[in-house]
């Protein structure tokens, strides 16, 4: 029983982290039909910005309790620098191309950003563990967990419910759903589709950066951080159904719990199991668990 609780708690933490890291990917795909590999780059950018800003903040002797706000601000600022540049500067000229070609374009942007990160922050690792230790810990059963882990759970809940409310309950959400349904008609109706794309791309990327920033205090921030998160995010959103918000949540929970259980019971299968679940879902529900039927062709 105690072990089960451990698996569950670990699984929840891991799911929350996955959701924050991956939800932007599904948002961007859902609205813009772009399979966006730069998502991993924004995660890494967020981590680097978070680590370096917070490191500087603490080194200057400013109040450490505000370092959480600095992490958030770092993620937002770094995204506002890069995301509009990429969307307005390059991606918007590519929307007419096939999905697969756009995927390749984001792949080349991912390669470029990998080195941009190295040029800005160098190749030495960054550590900022202060925010991690600051909040103390709490107990569940016999296990002790850092309270910091709850922050990501909070971010996951806020971003997930916030996005749902935005899409379902507001005028902007209604317009956005129109854009998703038919960008051409929306344009003809006078909706500023370009602005929706810019905002969606920026906001989706920002979520990845926030995920990276709040992960930074728990790891050493090194080059290549974004590489692994890309495949993990794909696993999460593909399991749920590309473009589906509840799908991403479900995918995160499935991957989170499955991984946590595997680590506890069969550690050797830790990596295998995530991609196995992804392949199985694709095999039986090619468009994911939350998916729409394909339209008739002739």
């Amino acid at each position: 029983m105690a072990e089960f609780v451990t698996v569950l708690v670990d699984g929840i933490f891991y799911s929350a982290w996955l959701f924050v890291a991956a939800v932007g990917l599904t948002l961007i795909y859902g609205v813009m039909k772009i399979v966006n590999l730069t998502h991993g780059s924004f995660y890494a950018l967020g981590a680097y910005a978070g680590a370096s800003f917070t490191g500087a903040w603490i080194a200057h002797g400013y109040p450490p309790m505000l370092s959480y706000a600095v992490l958030l601000a770092a993620a937002i600022i770094i995204t506002l620098v890069f995301a509009p540049l990429i969307e307005r500067g390059i991606l918007r000229f590519m929307y007419a191309k096939e999905e697969v070609v756009i995927l390749l374009i984001t792949y080349s942007l991912f390669l470029i950003l990998e080195d941009v990160i190295k040029l800005i922050w160098g190749v030495d690792p960054y550590f900022v563990s202060e925010p991690y230790g600051l909040l103390g810990s709490f107990d569940v059963g016999e296990m002790t967990y850092p309270t910091y882990n709850l922050i990501l759970v909070g971010i996951a809940i806020v971003s997930g419910s916030g996005l749902t409310l935005l899409l379902q309950g507001t005028r902007i959400g209604k317009l956005l759903r129109t854009v998703i349904h038919d960008p051409e008609v929306s344009r003809a109706m006078g909706i500023n589709v370009d602005r929706f794309y810019l905002v969606t791309f920026t906001f989706g990327s920002m979520l990845a950066a926030i995920g990276g920033a709040f992960t930074a205090p728990t790891v050493s921030v090194v080059p290549g951080l974004g590489v692994e998160i890309i495949v993990l995010s794909f696993a999460v959103v593909v399991i749920g159904g590309l473009g589906s918000l509840p799908g991403a949540a479900l995918g995160a929970v499935i991957v989170g719990l499955v991984r946590s259980a595997t680590i506890h019971y069969v550690p050797a299968l830790e990596l295998f199991v995530i991609y196995f679940v992804m392949a199985m879902v694709l095999a039986f529900r090619p468009r994911g668990l939350f998916s729409l039927a394909e339209p008739r062709k002739i």
Binding site: L103, I274, Y275, F276, A279, P286
Partner: peptide, 27 residues
């Protein structure tokens, strides 16, 4: 399995299969 898939789903499924092997070999 794969011959039923097109577009990005072909790409994603083949990636998942490849990562499965990676996961197995790494351990």
């Amino acid at each position: 399995l794969l011959a039923r898939y097109r577009g990005i789903f072909y790409g994603l499924l083949s990636m998942a299969l490849s990562m499965i092997l990676y996961g197995l070999l790494a351990k």
